[in-house]
Design a protein around this nucleic acid. Structure first.
Lengths: 246, 246
DNA sequence: CGGGTTGTTGAGCATCCTCAACGCGGGTGG
DNA sequence: CCACCCGCGTTGAGGATGCTCAACAACCCG
């Protein structure tokens, strides 16, 4: 929550043009003045360490963020004190769009490992659009919005399944697909979140998650370790999930 | 799926300036040239009757839609033939954003009663932005995107609850809130969808939904009828849901 | 009026939640 | 360096919730 207000240590240093995730982020397909407009608009954050928050629910905001590196979780606080993990977000994914409606974030974003995110001011689009090439940035943003929408659809479908192993398989398949898009090895899924967070996100108890993972491990479908899961039989997982065109 | 290709029977007839849902839609807060830009951009659909589809999953698209009147449901088709109801959408809500990423809709939208929607081309933002006041339209769109994001957060939280009565109460409270924003009576919730669709959306079986509604009816919390539900004790529903700041 | 779709009710069973104990690992302090 | 503690994850037993299957009732439509 304080991170963004700091005095921009080397603001332009990691420009979009050289960003390793550029191909999967706002900069995808942008050239020339559009790319420059993007670099003039986006403001990379300082690295956040595990557990540090990028923004807090309720905080006033005129921006959203794009994950640049690492992983973030987003949490909403229920009125009754419960808190719910609404998502895990990898490089190239937007978070904080809820602020576009009310001017306040409705969720908090917490880094799950050393991570960075790029701040994108969306409140005054007029300034953004005044830049030459600003239109390209907007259509890039809409592309990311579309991806977020797709992710929501997947998760809604997944959560509505009643059996725990289906939900878990669906989550793993979806995550493998997202990592694949990023050009990473989709057979090894690093899971920097706690089992508690994962269970919460999937709408089940810690114990249930643990049992199902153990079962899948024992029958050779996955290899579950402390810091991640190896997919030994992705096809079997996919049929278990019965999922949509992931 | 054919509706949009028709020869625009009276295209400009119901302009945004006179649209009854303008205050809750893209036109909210727009004046002068921004409003004109909006009217030049948005294309109202012919009225769709119950069961007719606005767009189909897989269909190529360069646009999204804003519900103008009535109610739509959106459905995704699973690979295994199952289909899942991903949402119900009321006036002023955007649907079809998934097309922004891939150029194809990932869900289908079906009218649940006689309904209209406005087509908003988002693929070439350059054309949109070239219009004087086009920036205002873009920020209006982002506001709707933020609302959609909020809705997704609510639904994710709701679906992750394990007890059926909690999910149902949460759904009703959320819907009442959305109708309230539209200036409608939030004590009577018209539910033009079938019980099957509703149960599917809430991640439970038809029988379970029916039983819980019967229970809530018997203890005086709601009055469940064929075509809708009256909220007799909203406060009790809210405490049942234990929901976030709906 | 009759058939079909849609919603309600009932009984039995699988799954998941609750509660509780135990094992493991990392961090701290002696 | 080791012992201890605490957070985190795993395993187990019992009970509640929701799913499956099936019959029945209500409604819409032709």
């Amino acid at each position: 929550m304080i991170v963004q207000t700091s005095k921009a240590p080397a603001r332009r240093a990691p420009s979009c043009g050289h960003c390793p995730t550029r191909r999967h982020c706002l900069g995808a397909g942008l050239e020339g003045e559009c790319l420059r407009a993007l670099e003039d608009t986006v403001e990379p954050s300082a690295p956040l360490r595990r557990g540090e928050t990028l923004y807090q629910a309720g905080e006033a905001a005129d921006c959203c963020f794009v994950v640049r590196s690492g992983v973030f979780k987003t949490c909403v606080q229920s009125r009754d004190g419960q808190h719910h993990v609404s998502g895990f977000h990898y490089p190239g994914e937007v978070i904080g769009l809820s602020a576009c409606a009310s001017g306040r974030f409705l969720e908090s974003a917490v880094a799950l490992e050393t991570s960075t995110a790029c701040r994108l001011p969306v409140a005054d689009t007029s300034r953004l659009l005044a830049l030459p090439g600003g239109g390209g940035v907007v259509s890039s943003l809409l592309r990311l919005v579309g991806r977020a929408e797709r992710q929501h659809l997947d998760e809604h479908t997944n959560l509505s399944r009643n059996r725990a192993d289906q939900r878990i398989a669906g989550f793993l398949v979806n995550l493998a697909g997202r990592l694949n898009v990023l050009g990473r090895d989709s057979r090894w899924l690093p899971l920097p979140m706690s089992r508690t967070d994962l269970a919460n996100h999937l709408g089940m108890t810690l114990e249930c998650l643990s049992r199902v993972l153990g079962r899948l491990h024992r029958c050779g479908t996955i290899r579950a370790e402390r810091d991640g899961i190896a997919l030994l039989d992705p096809e079997r997982l996919r049929s278990l999930a019965g999922h949509l065109e992931s």
